[in-house]
């Protein structure tokens, strides 16, 4: 779905996120950055899976990928800005970028914490079997998507056979020390038109079931709400559920989430080097203003900007909140 079409749909709703947050930020009347601790790099839209609700619209057919030159521009910023402690690598399936190993090694050499957002099944694909060992050697934190601890919802959302492959990948990661000596976290997002239950409650269910049935251990479960973008937005439109879903998000608006919103602590870089407040804004092509490209990076200007918000942002402020690191308030 084209960014402009998505923006038109979101703008047509009879309320605006900006009105909800304005009273909480009287000085600038907008969300503002706190500290830039994380640079999230979306290094390509190519993926070995085609999931229905993917907000990136990733699939095996996509060809967009971050080249070495753009990666080096990112690495320069990562090296220069001491307060960037974490590099969060995502996609698509980021492991499918030919320069993935180069990027990980370079970030580790700079002493940064590295996160790989992994769909798990890629670790089982021919040509990528070495990736799990590589990640373990480099001490990379893995954030792995697993929609559910049983086959039913996982395969329905991600495609037939994804659950079994994911389980084998998790067992492989456990054998390498992930879940015990190396950090392995799972990412959960609701398989439909509802908000997730509490992170603590679902983590306990995931841990019990995965341990009991498959001997799998992991550190934490992070719950992320579905934002009304791309694949998920199309599903909502098809079912005529956009208005009720948005009403639910709006009704669940929780101002306590505002302090922890990920856009206040990170920047998202697209495969072609443009800068965004988050991965979701990237999908809507809402570039930051000013200095929209990594080559023009200026820390001062980045920190004095206004964060660009729209009605999709209700997804991050609903209930206990939602971010790349899970819920925002306990």
């Amino acid at each position: 779905m084209l960014p402009n079409d998505q923006l038109t749909l979101l703008a047509a709703l009879p309320y605006s996120f900006e009105e909800f947050i304005r009273p909480h930020f009287p000085e600038k009347s907008a969300l503002t950055p706190c500290v830039l601790t994380t640079l999230q790099l979306n290094i390509g839209r190519r993926c070995n899976q085609s999931c229905r609700p993917c907000h990136v619209g990733a699939s095996p057919a996509r060809t967009e990928t971050m080249n070495r030159e753009t990666m080096d521009a990112c690495l320069q910023v990562i090296a220069e800005v001491d307060e960037i402690k974490t590099v969060d690598i995502t996609g698509g399936a980021p492991e499918m970028n030919d320069n993935f190993s180069y990027l990980v090694k370079a970030c580790k050499n700079l002493g940064k914490h590295v996160i790989d957002r992994c769909n798990l099944t890629i670790l089982q694909e021919p040509g990528y079997e070495h990736i799990a060992s590589f990640l373990a050697e480099q001490g990379v934190e893995i954030m792995a998507s697993l929609p559910y601890f049983r086959k039913s919802y996982t395969d329905r959302q991600r495609g037939a056979g994804v659950f079994d492959k994911s389980i084998r990948a998790l067992q492989k990661l456990n054998r390498l020390g992930y879940g015990t000596t190396l950090p392995l976290n799972l990412i959960y997002n609701p398989s439909g038109i509802y908000l997730s239950s509490s992170q603590q409650q679902l983590e306990s269910e995931f841990k019990n079931h995965l341990k009991q049935n498959y001997g799998i251990e992991f550190n934490h479960l992070y719950c992320i709400n579905n934002l009304p973008l791309d694949g998920f937005l199309q599903v909502l439109l098809k079912l005529d559920k956009l208005a009720p879903y948005m009403d639910m998000l709006k009704t669940s608006f929780n101002p306590c989430t505002l302090d922890g919103l990920m856009c206040r602590y990170q920047l998202s870089v697209s495969y072609d080097g443009y800068l965004y407040d988050c991965d979701f804004n990237q999908m809507l092509d809402l570039k930051i203003v000013p200095a929209p490209h990594i080559r023009e990076f200026s820390h001062d200007r980045i920190m004095s900007r206004k964060i660009r918000t729209m009605n999709h942002c209700f997804g991050c402020t609903a209930g206990s909140g939602s971010s790349c690191g899970g819920e925002l308030v306990k």
């Binding site: 039913s152 509802y194 908000l195 679902l202 269910e205």
Partner: peptide
């Protein structure tokens, strides 16, 4: 039905 889904139960 909604609460069961939210808490992590499936249709089966």
């Amino acid at each position: 039905t909604r609460i069961c889904i939210e808490k992590g139960s499936d249709e089966e």
